[in-house]
Nucleic acid binder design. Structure first.
Lengths: 223, 223
DNA sequence: AGTATAGATGAACACACGTTCGGTTGTCAA
DNA sequence: TTGACAACCGAACGTGTGTTCATCTATACT
């Protein structure tokens, strides 16, 4: 019988990652993605361990084929009888990922493009918002650093064109040709945009040149 | 409602081929394979029709990703789903929340306490790590601001006492009586702890007074 | 007539991605 | 010490694969 515990820690991680990636995307990950996710920084080592897993009967490979991986047999999902067992079978939701937000470029909005991917989220991350109104953006560049947001972060938003005081919003500033994430405040006839970093100064803009694309619900950072 | 007959003959063939290829291999075909199977001898035409199918809501694409195709909804015989159907899909996981991490206090570790709550996470947020090894901490205070982390953030960690270069870890520094989240590097006989904020200087500590509690997998911020 | 617009073509481009190889480290046994 | 071996690393290589572009054909509309 195949003994799951006979595998190395890395090999178990690879299998688990394969499973979750497959569930999320519908196609297998690349060697480099596996390496990144499991802390292996040489493709040859991933390749090495994948071949081990093939020998052990856990998966099949098509050689010279991009993402030519396939799980065979069953990976024990939650059989680990440790302490509090892990999977309460709650549902998770998917929201479309509409590309990247990048300073000096308009942020893509749902109408403009089709989603390039789906992001799995938990209900708590939507804060009660209808999943159909939610979408996600990937942050590109270090331009959002003043909002305590880093390159690669995933931002979950609710699509809307207005906002309340204190909301964090994605706004397109026409006069600056720039998109940012800032806290939103109405200040008399103007709009005050406050960076999340406490030491940075707010900027004031004319409502006419400031179009709101969505309100930030939550942020996911993957290391 | 999506009308299957509204599609061109080629587009229907593409969907059918996708289905059978997926069933046979476990991963999607390439553009060229689709072309070959459906009698199209230009990759750009396949590309063109794939985009049409995305618009029509039959499939999703991940751009610049080899075999980045996925069937959404059901090809006839089954039922249809709406445009971007937001669907309950995979199971989500729960990890225990072991209190808060706070500078000038040791971070709680799993052995010390029992969880005060459970946090729902998606498999992607664990990056392939066994859910049984994962736990969560809530960030208290503004002390982690140099790590681009704010009060209230939830940090997902994997319980471990060693780390690899480049990992972000939660460490207890005995000589400073302080807990922080930093990037971990071995530097000769010492340990270099690099803040996430690029402009801040790293600190160097003796391994003897630096105990690792866990490696950060991901971070959730709820607004 | 002109002129859009959907569909198709083939070639060129750029990079994503699997593969290979020389070298290093650690462990175990003789 | 020596040798063998499993695991790992980093870099280079070749090609698989998505994308883009200029061009061409139909059909339909003014």
């Amino acid at each position: 019988m195949k003994d799951f515990n006979k595998l190395s820690e890395r090999q178990r991680n690879i299998l688990r990652y394969m499973e979750s990636y497959l569930a999320e995307h519908g196609f297998p990950p690349t060697i480099r993605q596996i390496g990144e996710a499991t802390g292996i920084n040489s493709t040859s080592v991933v390749n090495y361990n994948l071949n081990k897993l093939v020998q052990a009967g856990y998966l099949a490979r098509s050689s010279h084929v991009a993402r030519g991986l396939r799980l065979v047999g069953q990976v024990p999902g939650g059989k680990k009888t440790g302490r509090l067992s892990v999977h309460a079978a709650a549902v998770s939701l998917q929201v479309p990922l509409y590309g990247s937000i990048f300073a000096s470029e308009p942020v893509s909005v749902p109408e403009d493009y089709y989603p390039e991917d789906n992001i799995e989220v938990t209900p708590a991350m939507l804060g009660g918002v209808d999943p159909a109104e939610a979408f996600a953006l990937r942050v590109k560049g270090e331009s959002m650093i003043d909002a305590m947001i880093r390159e690669g972060d995933i931002v979950i938003l609710r699509s809307q064109t207005t906002a309340n005081n204190g909301d964090m919003v994605a706004v397109w500033l026409e006069d600056r040709s720039e998109t940012t994430l800032k806290y939103f405040f109405r200040d008399g006839g103007r709009i005050k945009l406050q960076p999340a970093h406490p030491e940075m100064q707010p900027i004031y803009v004319d409502p006419a040149v400031c179009s709101i694309r969505g309100k930030v619900l939550s942020i996911i950072r993957h290391l």
